[in-house]
């Protein structure tokens, strides 16, 4: 059963697909260019200690995102 969640709710090792991105236009273009596009599968690899950034693999690209920004990405688990 697929359900809607936020990227920030994933636990390391979990995969999901991008559903929607709720950020300002400028940052949305940046995320798009990094590979965050609707329907794309991604995997949360790890979260840095002390509430640090999320290490995400999307396609063949690995990206780090802060929790507050990961919250803005809706995913389907």
């Amino acid at each position: 059963m697929a359900n809607l969640s936020r990227l920030s709710n994933l636990t390391p090792g979990q995969t999901a697909t991008v559903q929607a991105i709720h950020v300002d236009t400028g940052f949305k273009f940046r995320l798009n260019a990094l590979g965050f596009r609707i329907g794309k599968p991604l995997e949360l690899i790890r979260i840095a200690p002390f509430n640090g950034p999320y290490h995400i693999k999307i396609g063949n690209t690995e990206v780090m995102l802060r929790q507050q920004d990961a919250k803005m990405i809706e995913v389907l688990m």
């Binding site: 950020v23 940052f27 940046r30 995320l31 990094l34 950034p53 290490h55 690209t61 690995e62 990206v63 780090m64 995102l65 802060r66 507050q68 920004d69």
Partner: peptide, 9 residues
């Protein structure tokens, strides 16, 4: 500023 940065191989 939002922070998104690549981790290259």
């Amino acid at each position: 500023e939002p922070f998104a940065l690549e981790l290259p191989p």
